[in-house]
Amino acid sequence: MAAFFRNVIKNKVMLFMVLPGAIWFFFFSYLPLVGTVAAFKQYRFNREGFWASIYTSKWVGWDNFKFLFNNNDAYVITRNTLLYNLVFIILGLVFSVAMAILLSELINKRLAKLYQTGMFLPYFLSWVIVGYFAFSFLSMDRGMLNQILAGFGIEPIQWYSEAAYWPYILILVSLWKAIGYNSVVYLASILGIDKSLYEAAMIDGASKWQQIRNVTLPLLSPIIIIMTLLAVGRIFYADFGLFYQVPRDSGTLYSVTNVIDTYVYRGLKTTGEIGMSTAAGLYQSVVGFVLVILSNYVVRKIDKDSALF
């Protein structure tokens, strides 16, 4: 115990730095874990408060989980959630790393900062605003895309009624919003690479592409693996705003835009079943945890130093 307090005093500055984050995690990540018991109850709110309501609610076991899967939509929402996230992980990684490398290669650093700021700004826009941006392009009557098509003599397309186009639209919008933010992490890693490695490669006659392939990418691989493992942990989570606000909750697009999060939201709005919503969140968390453990185990078998833990 004495050694513990000595370490606390020795590292007090570092501990004070992480204290705000630790408090945030305690109140918003760890404390709510107590409420996961609602996933196994038919939650009914009473005047005594949230926790008392959990205690007095009827225990229903796995019934809330059965609601998620014993219907025709279970396959669709699971398929959409998994496939979209797989595409987001793969394409997001490729484009973010590529953009970071391009920015690092710009000679004019002021111009590079301007480009970086312009790419970073979409991340701060809410999905409501992005949804209106998309509507300004895709509106049937005054949308920019339909006006361009009309200029070529092509009939306007009812974008919000044609499900076939939306997988591509959602992927494009997601990449546009997230690439700038994700590329910052890789750009910081690239800027931390020892410049003498590039100088040695240039002396050996390596081209710019050979420098990227043999110096930049190998040294980026640890951070790439860590970011990918973290993304895999949320593969059963979908960005609610992307799948609800951008398609404007159009019922004709549910076959390609309905994911676990939007399905639970609509179910909660219709039935008011908090237990079902909690069950969905618990299911997503458990699956994400298992996937991170398995992915990290595979990485440790291949390269122990690149594993997350």
Rank of each mutant, 00 (worst) to 15 (best):
R47K: 14
I302M: 14
P32I: 01
S306N: 13
W24V: 13
V232D: 01
Q42N: 13
A178T: 14
F50D: 12
T81G: 05
N46H: 04
S53V: 12
F67P: 06
W159V: 04
A39R: 12
I171R: 08
L229A: 04
G143H: 10
I226P: 13
Y181I: 08
L175Y: 06
N296S: 10
L86E: 13
Y181S: 05
W176Q: 03
W127D: 05
L149S: 07
V259I: 02
A307Y: 03
L172E: 03
Y254D: 01
R79I: 06
W62M: 12
L82C: 09
R300N: 08
E273N: 14
K12Q: 10
A200L: 04
D303Q: 14
W166Q: 00
I89A: 06
A98L: 13
A134K: 09
F309D: 15
F236W: 10
V259F: 02
E155F: 02
R44M: 09
Y237T: 12
F40L: 08
I212N: 11
A52N: 10
R47M: 08
T117V: 10
R6D: 14
I203R: 06
K113S: 08
F25L: 11
Y244S: 08
K113R: 15
P122W: 10
S29N: 08
P167S: 00
V128N: 12
N7H: 09
V76G: 09
P218A: 15
V215I: 12
G118E: 05
T78P: 02
Y75M: 09
R79Q: 08
L294H: 08
N46Y: 07
A39N: 11
D194M: 02
S285D: 04
D249A: 01
K41I: 11
A280M: 01
A163H: 04
L145C: 13
V292D: 03
L170N: 05
E273L: 09
F25I: 09
G192A: 06
L138M: 07
L15A: 07
F120M: 14
I235W: 04
A150H: 05
V299M: 10
K109R: 12
W159R: 05
N258F: 01
V94P: 02
R110D: 11
E105F: 11
F4S: 03
S29L: 12
A39M: 07
Q42Y: 11
W62N: 06
S96G: 06
F135V: 07
N296K: 06
I129R: 10
L187Q: 00
R47P: 03
Y75R: 09
F65C: 02
A201G: 03
S136M: 15
M17H: 05
A39Y: 04
L103G: 00
A163P: 14
Y132M: 10
F25V: 08
V184Y: 02
S96F: 05
T257G: 01
Q42E: 12
M202V: 13
F16V: 06
F67K: 11
T228P: 15
L229D: 03
D204T: 02
D204E: 13
V287P: 04
S196Q: 04
G21P: 02
L19R: 00
